[in-house]
Nucleic acid binder design. Structure first.
Lengths: 170, 170
DNA sequence: CAGTTTATGTCAGCCTTGTTGACATTCCAA
DNA sequence: TTGGAATGTCAACAAGGCTGACATAAACTG
Protein backbone atom coordinates (compact mmCIF):
# COMPACT_ATOMS: atom_id res chain seq x y z
CA UNK A 1 0.00 0.00 0.00
CA UNK A 2 3.00 2.26 0.49
CA UNK A 3 4.84 0.99 -2.51
CA UNK A 4 4.13 3.71 -5.01
CA UNK A 5 1.07 2.22 -6.63
CA UNK A 6 -2.51 1.99 -5.62
CA UNK A 7 -3.95 -1.29 -4.50
CA UNK A 8 -6.91 -2.75 -6.30
CA UNK A 9 -7.27 -3.55 -9.99
CA UNK A 10 -4.83 -1.24 -11.75
CA UNK A 11 -6.43 -1.61 -15.14
CA UNK A 12 -4.36 1.13 -16.71
CA UNK A 13 -4.62 4.77 -17.63
CA UNK A 14 -8.19 5.36 -16.46
CA UNK A 15 -6.97 4.78 -12.89
CA UNK A 16 -3.87 6.88 -13.20
CA UNK A 17 -5.38 9.42 -10.86
CA UNK A 18 -5.38 6.80 -8.13
CA UNK A 19 -1.63 6.34 -7.92
CA UNK A 20 -0.16 7.09 -4.52
CA UNK A 21 1.56 10.09 -6.03
CA UNK A 22 -1.74 11.50 -7.26
CA UNK A 23 -3.33 10.83 -3.91
CA UNK A 24 -0.49 12.57 -2.15
CA UNK A 25 -0.96 15.58 -4.36
CA UNK A 26 -4.62 15.60 -3.43
CA UNK A 27 -3.70 15.46 0.24
CA UNK A 28 -1.27 18.33 -0.08
CA UNK A 29 -3.71 20.37 -2.15
CA UNK A 30 -6.24 19.91 0.61
CA UNK A 31 -3.74 21.04 3.22
CA UNK A 32 -2.64 24.19 1.42
CA UNK A 33 -6.12 25.09 0.21
CA UNK A 34 -7.58 24.87 3.69
CA UNK A 35 -5.02 27.40 4.84
CA UNK A 36 -6.20 29.76 2.11
CA UNK A 37 -9.79 28.99 2.94
CA UNK A 38 -9.43 30.22 6.52
CA UNK A 39 -6.84 32.93 5.93
CA UNK A 40 -9.16 35.88 5.32
CA UNK A 41 -11.55 35.35 8.23
CA UNK A 42 -8.56 34.63 10.46
CA UNK A 43 -7.08 37.99 9.58
CA UNK A 44 -10.30 39.74 10.57
CA UNK A 45 -10.62 37.70 13.75
CA UNK A 46 -7.04 38.42 14.70
CA UNK A 47 -7.88 42.05 15.34
CA UNK A 48 -10.79 41.09 17.57
CA UNK A 49 -10.82 38.90 20.64
CA UNK A 50 -12.37 36.02 18.73
CA UNK A 51 -10.98 32.94 17.04
CA UNK A 52 -11.97 30.39 14.47
CA UNK A 53 -14.27 28.66 16.93
CA UNK A 54 -16.35 31.82 17.26
CA UNK A 55 -16.51 32.13 13.51
CA UNK A 56 -17.83 28.61 13.14
CA UNK A 57 -20.46 29.08 15.84
CA UNK A 58 -21.65 32.35 14.36
CA UNK A 59 -21.73 30.85 10.88
CA UNK A 60 -23.96 27.94 11.77
CA UNK A 61 -26.24 29.95 14.05
CA UNK A 62 -26.76 32.31 11.13
CA UNK A 63 -27.32 29.42 8.82
CA UNK A 64 -29.89 27.75 11.04
CA UNK A 65 -31.41 30.36 13.36
CA UNK A 66 -33.06 28.91 16.42
CA UNK A 67 -30.84 25.84 16.43
CA UNK A 68 -30.32 24.23 19.83
CA UNK A 69 -27.03 23.96 21.66
CA UNK A 70 -27.12 20.21 21.27
CA UNK A 71 -27.71 20.43 17.55
CA UNK A 72 -24.91 22.94 17.16
CA UNK A 73 -22.36 20.86 18.98
CA UNK A 74 -23.18 17.89 16.78
CA UNK A 75 -22.62 20.03 13.69
CA UNK A 76 -19.36 21.45 15.00
CA UNK A 77 -18.09 18.18 16.39
CA UNK A 78 -16.89 19.56 19.72
CA UNK A 79 -17.86 18.97 23.33
CA UNK A 80 -20.51 21.05 25.02
CA UNK A 81 -17.88 22.46 27.35
CA UNK A 82 -15.82 23.74 24.44
CA UNK A 83 -18.83 25.16 22.72
CA UNK A 84 -20.16 26.65 25.93
CA UNK A 85 -17.06 28.74 26.46
CA UNK A 86 -17.43 30.17 22.99
CA UNK A 87 -21.17 30.77 23.27
CA UNK A 88 -20.87 32.37 26.70
CA UNK A 89 -18.46 34.93 25.36
CA UNK A 90 -20.58 35.64 22.29
CA UNK A 91 -23.61 36.12 24.54
CA UNK A 92 -21.74 38.35 26.99
CA UNK A 93 -20.67 40.47 24.04
CA UNK A 94 -24.21 40.63 22.76
CA UNK A 95 -23.64 38.84 19.45
CA UNK A 96 -25.76 35.81 20.26
CA UNK A 97 -28.87 35.37 22.34
CA UNK A 98 -30.35 32.14 23.62
CA UNK A 99 -34.07 31.74 24.10
CA UNK A 100 -35.59 29.08 26.29
CA UNK A 101 -37.53 26.60 24.19
CA UNK A 102 -41.31 26.83 24.18
CA UNK A 103 -42.26 23.20 23.75
CA UNK A 104 -39.19 21.87 25.56
CA UNK A 105 -37.96 24.38 28.07
CA UNK A 106 -34.66 22.57 28.59
CA UNK A 107 -33.55 23.54 25.15
CA UNK A 108 -31.93 26.85 24.34
CA UNK A 109 -32.56 28.22 20.88
CA UNK A 110 -29.73 30.33 19.53
CA UNK A 111 -30.09 33.50 17.48
CA UNK A 112 -27.76 36.20 16.25
CA UNK A 113 -28.38 39.77 17.31
CA UNK A 114 -27.95 42.58 14.80
CA UNK A 115 -24.40 42.94 15.96
CA UNK A 116 -23.87 39.22 15.55
CA UNK A 117 -25.24 39.27 12.04
CA UNK A 118 -22.90 42.13 11.37
CA UNK A 119 -19.81 40.19 12.32
CA UNK A 120 -21.08 37.13 10.48
CA UNK A 121 -21.47 39.17 7.32
CA UNK A 122 -17.96 40.58 7.57
CA UNK A 123 -16.45 37.13 7.98
CA UNK A 124 -18.64 35.50 5.34
CA UNK A 125 -18.03 38.21 2.81
CA UNK A 126 -14.30 37.73 3.11
CA UNK A 127 -14.52 33.97 2.85
CA UNK A 128 -17.02 34.06 0.02
CA UNK A 129 -14.90 36.51 -1.94
CA UNK A 130 -12.06 34.01 -2.06
CA UNK A 131 -14.38 31.13 -2.83
CA UNK A 132 -16.02 33.16 -5.57
CA UNK A 133 -12.69 33.98 -7.15
CA UNK A 134 -11.62 30.35 -7.02
CA UNK A 135 -14.94 29.17 -8.49
CA UNK A 136 -14.76 31.78 -11.22
CA UNK A 137 -11.21 30.85 -12.15
CA UNK A 138 -11.93 27.15 -12.15
CA UNK A 139 -15.24 27.18 -14.02
CA UNK A 140 -18.54 25.39 -13.38
CA UNK A 141 -17.43 21.89 -14.25
CA UNK A 142 -14.45 22.04 -11.93
CA UNK A 143 -16.74 23.36 -9.20
CA UNK A 144 -19.10 20.43 -9.66
CA UNK A 145 -16.17 18.03 -9.39
CA UNK A 146 -14.84 19.85 -6.35
CA UNK A 147 -18.12 19.40 -4.53
CA UNK A 148 -18.47 15.77 -5.57
CA UNK A 149 -15.06 14.85 -4.19
CA UNK A 150 -15.57 16.81 -0.97
CA UNK A 151 -18.86 15.07 -0.31
CA UNK A 152 -17.24 11.71 -0.91
CA UNK A 153 -14.54 12.60 1.59
CA UNK A 154 -16.95 13.22 4.48
CA UNK A 155 -17.94 10.67 7.07
CA UNK A 156 -21.43 9.41 6.40
CA UNK A 157 -22.85 11.23 9.39
CA UNK A 158 -21.30 14.51 8.29
CA UNK A 159 -22.69 13.89 4.84
CA UNK A 160 -26.15 13.69 6.31
CA UNK A 161 -25.63 16.88 8.31
CA UNK A 162 -24.23 18.64 5.28
CA UNK A 163 -27.08 17.55 3.03
CA UNK A 164 -29.68 18.60 5.57
CA UNK A 165 -28.14 22.05 5.83
CA UNK A 166 -27.85 22.27 2.07
CA UNK A 167 -31.50 21.47 1.54
CA UNK A 168 -32.66 23.81 4.26
CA UNK A 169 -30.80 26.57 2.43
CA UNK A 170 -31.83 27.47 -1.09
CA UNK B 1 -22.58 41.33 -1.25
CA UNK B 2 -24.56 39.61 1.47
CA UNK B 3 -27.86 39.95 -0.28
CA UNK B 4 -28.27 36.47 -1.72
CA UNK B 5 -26.74 37.08 -5.12
CA UNK B 6 -23.21 37.35 -6.30
CA UNK B 7 -21.83 40.69 -7.30
CA UNK B 8 -20.48 41.21 -10.79
CA UNK B 9 -22.25 40.63 -14.08
CA UNK B 10 -24.99 38.11 -13.35
CA UNK B 11 -25.43 37.04 -16.95
CA UNK B 12 -27.69 34.16 -16.05
CA UNK B 13 -27.56 30.42 -15.70
CA UNK B 14 -23.88 29.93 -16.49
CA UNK B 15 -23.05 31.82 -13.29
CA UNK B 16 -25.61 30.10 -11.14
CA UNK B 17 -22.80 28.36 -9.28
CA UNK B 18 -21.63 31.74 -8.05
CA UNK B 19 -24.70 32.63 -6.04
CA UNK B 20 -24.05 33.26 -2.36
CA UNK B 21 -25.98 30.10 -1.57
CA UNK B 22 -23.74 28.03 -3.81
CA UNK B 23 -20.68 29.64 -2.30
CA UNK B 24 -21.94 28.90 1.18
CA UNK B 25 -22.42 25.28 0.24
CA UNK B 26 -18.85 25.22 -0.99
CA UNK B 27 -17.68 26.70 2.29
CA UNK B 28 -19.57 24.15 4.33
CA UNK B 29 -18.44 21.29 2.13
CA UNK B 30 -14.87 22.41 2.75
CA UNK B 31 -15.46 22.50 6.49
CA UNK B 32 -16.99 19.05 6.76
CA UNK B 33 -14.64 17.45 4.27
CA UNK B 34 -11.57 18.70 6.10
CA UNK B 35 -12.84 17.00 9.22
CA UNK B 36 -13.08 13.75 7.29
CA UNK B 37 -9.70 14.38 5.75
CA UNK B 38 -7.96 14.50 9.13
CA UNK B 39 -10.17 12.04 11.00
CA UNK B 40 -8.26 8.83 10.28
CA UNK B 41 -4.74 10.05 11.07
CA UNK B 42 -6.13 11.81 14.14
CA UNK B 43 -7.49 8.51 15.40
CA UNK B 44 -4.09 6.87 15.04
CA UNK B 45 -2.32 9.82 16.62
CA UNK B 46 -4.73 9.89 19.53
CA UNK B 47 -3.30 6.63 20.83
CA UNK B 48 0.22 7.99 20.65
CA UNK B 49 1.70 11.08 22.23
CA UNK B 50 1.68 12.93 18.93
CA UNK B 51 -0.71 15.36 17.32
CA UNK B 52 -1.53 16.76 13.93
CA UNK B 53 1.53 18.97 14.02
CA UNK B 54 3.79 15.92 14.21
CA UNK B 55 1.92 14.32 11.35
CA UNK B 56 2.48 17.34 9.14
CA UNK B 57 6.17 17.54 9.96
CA UNK B 58 6.68 13.85 9.31
CA UNK B 59 4.73 14.06 6.08
CA UNK B 60 6.80 16.83 4.57
CA UNK B 61 10.13 15.46 5.78
CA UNK B 62 9.20 12.23 4.06
CA UNK B 63 8.13 14.09 0.99
CA UNK B 64 11.34 16.10 0.75
CA UNK B 65 14.09 14.26 2.61
CA UNK B 66 17.00 16.46 3.58
CA UNK B 67 14.88 19.57 3.72
CA UNK B 68 16.14 22.26 6.06
CA UNK B 69 14.36 23.53 9.14
CA UNK B 70 13.86 26.90 7.52
CA UNK B 71 12.33 25.39 4.42
CA UNK B 72 10.02 23.23 6.48
CA UNK B 73 8.68 26.06 8.54
CA UNK B 74 7.89 28.00 5.38
CA UNK B 75 5.96 25.03 4.04
CA UNK B 76 4.08 24.50 7.27
CA UNK B 77 3.45 28.18 7.87
CA UNK B 78 4.36 28.13 11.57
CA UNK B 79 7.05 29.79 13.65
CA UNK B 80 10.38 28.16 14.28
CA UNK B 81 9.51 27.92 17.99
CA UNK B 82 6.39 25.95 17.23
CA UNK B 83 8.17 23.71 14.78
CA UNK B 84 11.13 23.27 17.07
CA UNK B 85 8.98 21.87 19.85
CA UNK B 86 7.61 19.28 17.46
CA UNK B 87 10.96 18.42 15.88
CA UNK B 88 12.72 18.14 19.23
CA UNK B 89 10.23 15.54 20.38
CA UNK B 90 10.43 13.62 17.12
CA UNK B 91 14.23 13.58 17.38
CA UNK B 92 14.20 12.56 21.05
CA UNK B 93 11.92 9.70 20.11
CA UNK B 94 14.19 8.69 17.25
CA UNK B 95 11.75 9.29 14.40
CA UNK B 96 13.67 12.14 12.82
CA UNK B 97 17.35 12.90 12.58
CA UNK B 98 19.01 16.16 11.65
CA UNK B 99 22.32 16.25 9.85
CA UNK B 100 24.59 19.26 9.73
CA UNK B 101 24.79 20.62 6.20
CA UNK B 102 27.91 19.95 4.17
CA UNK B 103 28.16 23.11 2.08
CA UNK B 104 26.51 25.33 4.69
CA UNK B 105 27.13 24.03 8.17
CA UNK B 106 24.51 26.27 9.72
CA UNK B 107 21.77 24.29 8.10
CA UNK B 108 20.26 21.12 9.52
CA UNK B 109 18.96 18.64 7.01
CA UNK B 110 16.05 16.57 8.24
CA UNK B 111 15.54 12.88 7.56
CA UNK B 112 13.19 10.22 8.81
CA UNK B 113 14.63 7.19 10.52
CA UNK B 114 13.20 3.75 9.79
CA UNK B 115 10.88 4.20 12.72
CA UNK B 116 9.86 7.60 11.41
CA UNK B 117 9.12 6.21 7.99
CA UNK B 118 7.09 3.56 9.72
CA UNK B 119 4.81 6.05 11.44
CA UNK B 120 4.59 8.13 8.30
CA UNK B 121 3.41 5.11 6.35
CA UNK B 122 0.76 4.25 8.92
CA UNK B 123 -0.63 7.78 8.86
CA UNK B 124 -0.37 8.18 5.10
CA UNK B 125 -1.96 4.84 4.40
CA UNK B 126 -4.98 5.80 6.45
CA UNK B 127 -5.31 9.19 4.84
CA UNK B 128 -4.73 7.89 1.36
CA UNK B 129 -7.30 5.15 1.82
CA UNK B 130 -10.00 7.74 2.39
CA UNK B 131 -8.76 9.92 -0.44
CA UNK B 132 -8.62 6.92 -2.73
CA UNK B 133 -12.20 5.96 -1.89
CA UNK B 134 -13.38 9.51 -2.48
CA UNK B 135 -11.51 9.75 -5.78
CA UNK B 136 -12.86 6.40 -6.90
CA UNK B 137 -16.44 7.33 -6.04
CA UNK B 138 -16.19 10.71 -7.69
CA UNK B 139 -14.42 9.70 -10.90
CA UNK B 140 -11.47 11.23 -12.77
CA UNK B 141 -13.23 14.32 -14.06
CA UNK B 142 -14.48 15.30 -10.63
CA UNK B 143 -10.96 14.76 -9.29
CA UNK B 144 -9.53 17.09 -11.89
CA UNK B 145 -12.08 19.72 -10.96
CA UNK B 146 -11.39 19.20 -7.27
CA UNK B 147 -7.72 19.92 -7.78
CA UNK B 148 -8.35 22.91 -10.00
CA UNK B 149 -10.58 24.59 -7.42
CA UNK B 150 -8.22 23.81 -4.54
CA UNK B 151 -5.30 25.32 -6.38
CA UNK B 152 -7.31 28.43 -7.13
CA UNK B 153 -8.14 28.71 -3.45
CA UNK B 154 -4.52 28.86 -2.31
CA UNK B 155 -2.56 32.03 -1.71
CA UNK B 156 -0.12 32.62 -4.53
CA UNK B 157 2.86 31.81 -2.37
CA UNK B 158 1.32 28.53 -1.26
CA UNK B 159 0.57 27.76 -4.87
CA UNK B 160 4.24 28.10 -5.66
CA UNK B 161 5.20 25.87 -2.75
CA UNK B 162 2.59 23.32 -3.74
CA UNK B 163 3.65 23.29 -7.37
CA UNK B 164 7.28 22.90 -6.46
CA UNK B 165 6.51 19.92 -4.26
CA UNK B 166 4.26 18.47 -6.92
CA UNK B 167 6.96 18.66 -9.57
CA UNK B 168 9.62 17.26 -7.27
CA UNK B 169 7.37 14.30 -6.72
CA UNK B 170 6.45 12.09 -9.64
C1' DC C 1 39.99 41.06 9.74
C1' DA C 2 35.70 43.26 11.74
C1' DG C 3 31.11 43.59 11.53
C1' DT C 4 26.66 42.02 9.84
C1' DT C 5 23.46 38.76 8.42
C1' DT C 6 21.53 34.14 8.37
C1' DA C 7 20.12 29.60 10.30
C1' DT C 8 19.14 27.43 14.15
C1' DG C 9 18.05 26.43 18.95
C1' DT C 10 16.07 27.52 23.36
C1' DC C 11 13.67 29.71 27.33
C1' DA C 12 9.66 31.94 29.16
C1' DG C 13 5.11 33.32 28.91
C1' DC C 14 0.65 33.87 26.81
C1' DC C 15 -3.70 32.57 24.10
C1' DT C 16 -7.18 29.68 21.86
C1' DT C 17 -9.44 25.70 21.68
C1' DG C 18 -9.81 21.20 22.35
C1' DT C 19 -10.30 17.40 26.12
C1' DT C 20 -12.33 14.83 30.91
C1' DG C 21 -14.58 14.64 35.06
C1' DA C 22 -17.79 16.20 38.42
C1' DC C 23 -21.91 18.23 39.71
C1' DA C 24 -26.41 21.16 39.65
C1' DT C 25 -30.66 22.31 37.49
C1' DT C 26 -34.61 21.71 34.84
C1' DC C 27 -37.99 19.15 32.86
C1' DC C 28 -39.97 15.32 29.97
C1' DA C 29 -41.78 10.76 30.08
C1' DA C 30 -42.61 6.18 31.70
C1' DT D 1 -42.52 10.04 41.31
C1' DT D 2 -38.47 8.83 39.68
C1' DG D 3 -35.06 8.10 35.98
C1' DG D 4 -32.88 10.03 32.31
C1' DA D 5 -32.06 13.73 28.96
C1' DA D 6 -30.62 18.49 27.93
C1' DT D 7 -28.19 22.11 29.52
C1' DG D 8 -24.93 24.91 32.12
C1' DT D 9 -20.85 25.51 34.86
C1' DC D 10 -16.46 24.77 37.33
C1' DA D 11 -11.81 22.99 37.41
C1' DA D 12 -7.85 21.08 35.46
C1' DC D 13 -5.17 19.83 31.71
C1' DA D 14 -2.90 19.36 26.91
C1' DA D 15 -1.77 20.58 22.19
C1' DG D 16 -0.14 23.77 19.46
C1' DG D 17 -0.26 28.26 17.91
C1' DC D 18 2.00 33.02 19.10
C1' DT D 19 5.69 36.86 20.66
C1' DG D 20 9.94 38.37 22.62
C1' DA D 21 14.54 37.75 24.01
C1' DC D 22 18.84 35.81 23.73
C1' DA D 23 22.84 32.49 22.30
C1' DT D 24 25.70 30.26 18.95
C1' DA D 25 27.90 29.19 14.81
C1' DA D 26 28.67 29.93 10.15
C1' DA D 27 28.66 32.62 6.18
C1' DC D 28 29.03 36.80 3.89
C1' DT D 29 30.71 41.61 3.06
C1' DG D 30 33.26 45.68 3.11
Amino acid sequence: MADGRTSGPSSGESLLYLTDEQLRQGIEAMFFAYRGFTADPDRILGDLTYGRAHHRAVHFINRAPGTTVNNLLHILGVTKQSLNRVLRKLMEDGLVESRVGTSDKRERHLHLTDEGRNLEARLSDAQRARMRAAFRDAGPEAVAGFRTVLEAMMDTEMQRTYTKLKESGA
